[in-house]
Design a protein around this nucleic acid. Structure first.
Lengths: 204, 204, 204, 204
DNA sequence: CATGAATGAGGATTCATTCAT
DNA sequence: AATGAATGAATCCTCATTCAT
């Protein structure tokens, strides 16, 4: 009859572990392909006990996605806020983006691939965070165009999304193939993104 | 089972429709989130009747993926085989890649997002076709490096995959947002990929 | 629109083949474990076509059982009617019983093992034939007791059923193991049944 | 799955009840004719709940058969091990065999009639137990032949199986007709088996 | 005669969720 | 704080049967 102390540090920590377990399982099997039994097993508890920490499977997916995006956006705000050259800022952004795939228990992958299985209502926060991220990136590009660091005719919206697409692609590759080096891929993504494939003077 | 002659044009056509219906449904709800009832409804037949045309839900996913990749690789082989400049070949490749998202009942999207839910054994053909595609693209890059059309230090493997990642990202966007123009996105992808975002002389 | 000539020799022959196919399949997989597809395959026709020859799966089972019992009882009447010693009559009975397992497409086995899956109503004829067979055998025993050929205290009902049980057991063995010799098993069954296992003078 | 502790007495007892319910239902309707709904109803639980106690319908059949054979073989070993006359040993064997039909929720009947619907792999234990039983019986006969208790030319293998066939036949009859008396049938089976039907001096 | 196509009901199995303890 | 037990709905798939052609 004691009221549940769901604010205790112990509870919060176990809850966090539950979300991470969900992230791992969802990343592997997909939201619908994963069972709450899978998540409980990953955590080392019984299936029924899982519901002490999550409200529903769907809520768990939402938490996983939020966990991924929150860290992601926070890093981005930090990077953008610093006084550094465009190239360095972009390098940091890309490394942060790719790096977050290897941390966070694959929550990033889950966000990218599974978030649309959430009902509209549950995606509100997620959409806001995602927009914020894209906006920060887009603004960075706008300023760079004005500064002359980027091509004057650049479609900043298109470019921001392209960078996201590129990073998401390689992020998943980093998860799938552990031989890939984060630093190496980050550098190449930056090069590819800034200068393309053709011979250019900037690098000569 | 031995003497079933499911080769009539009528049967083959209906079967094709079934695979397309599966593609549509899988693209929307994911493999595990979609039910065979969903597919049957999409086709306008009873759930049980669906099995007259497909062997299992899993087999349907395999067919969807194969349908996507076969067309895709065939186009690629055609494009590569022609005597055209690198830029035109790449432009054609990108347009074909993006275009195939808008045809094929979203089979491309399903291939990209759901194929890993197939058991190993069912992915053999798929893997072969996928490798073939990447290889064709990579070879195109190798030759272009030798010709001097691309940067001499280019990591062709990385670049080929980056192009695929970029196209897949925008392919899904084209599906999601019908206001996007295929031609416009294709051109921008080509520009981004070849020349990056920085100001460059090639295009000036 | 021509009325179906279900009395033609051609039809009757094909119908017979259908019942035999059903017998084979039912013997192997059991009534509920067998599908009409299995039967059609065995016959080399399409599943739908099967219904031209049988009214339902259940009706097919009834036919199979009847086919088995009719032959069985007819042989028995023939054997009993002859003027022969008890021992020879029994030998003939046993050989006929066991032999029918190797002919008749396993219909005997199906009758023994599957007939109870028929609804009461469909078992009427079957019961009559079965009772008739047991009665014939029992009468044979009664007479033999009176003649002094069999033990005066013999429970003829029990003995008749025991003989049936013994023959059914070995009948199935003959189906399962093709190395077993019909003649050999028949002789041993007769010996076992008449004289048991203990040393006796009759055979010395 | 790893940490499930389904070892509580409560669980084991309910599980046992589930297997017995399955035995009853399989005996009545056959393996393929019985539904898991039937078993669950027999147990008084929901269909889905049944799977908390069994892994699959097939596994349930295996358990039923094992349950039957285990008790059966254990009794047989006990009987054979005692120092008693052949006749008494056989009497005990037959009574045990027939008696087990009336206990064990008809598991013996299920074993005899349905075990072949199990896939090869699931029949391994079953085969071993069955062979063991037949072997024990056969050995008993071999010794009796040597002692002169049984006919010197006896085919012990044939006789052992015949006894099994006889007992199985009457075992099923005991299930079907509750008016039959176990003791009566046992005695008659022994008489029939040892001395056959002809007049003999041994018993006079 | 025979078939291809379709149906709809039934069946095994899984699973998110609940809840008493 | 956690679990074992149970539920009932959903889901994939099979199958007996029908019927137009």
């Amino acid at each position: 009859m004691a009221s549940l102390q769901k604010t205790s540090a112990r509870y919060q920590q176990q809850r966090q572990r539950a979300i991470e377990a969900a992230a791992t399982v969802f990343a592997d099997k997909g939201f619908h392909g994963a069972s709450t039994q899978d998540i409980a097993s990953q955590l080392g508890i019984q299936q029924g006990s899982l519901y002490y920490y999550i409200d529903s499977k769907e809520a768990a997916l939402e938490e996983v996605c939020l966990m991924a995006l929150r860290g992601y956006v926070a890093q981005m705000e930090n990077i953008i806020g610093q006084t550094l050259s465009l190239e360095v800022k972009l390098a940091n952004t890309i490394r942060a983006h790719l790096g977050s795939y290897r941390e966070h228990n694959e929550a990033m992958k889950v966000h990218n691939e599974q978030r649309l299985y959430l009902p509209e209502q549950r995606r509100n926060q997620l959409k806001a965070l995602g927009s914020r991220y894209r906006q920060l990136l887009e603004n960075l590009f706008h300023e760079a165009v004005i500064n002359g660091d980027l091509h004057p005719d650049l479609d900043c919206h298109f470019s921001a999304r392209s960078l996201i697409g590129l990073c998401n692609y390689w992020g998943v590759m980093l998860l799938r193939d552990h031989k890939l080096q984060l630093e190496d891929i980050s550098t190449k993504c930056l090069q590819q993104f800034l200068y393309g494939c053709t011979p250019h003077r900037n690098n000569s």
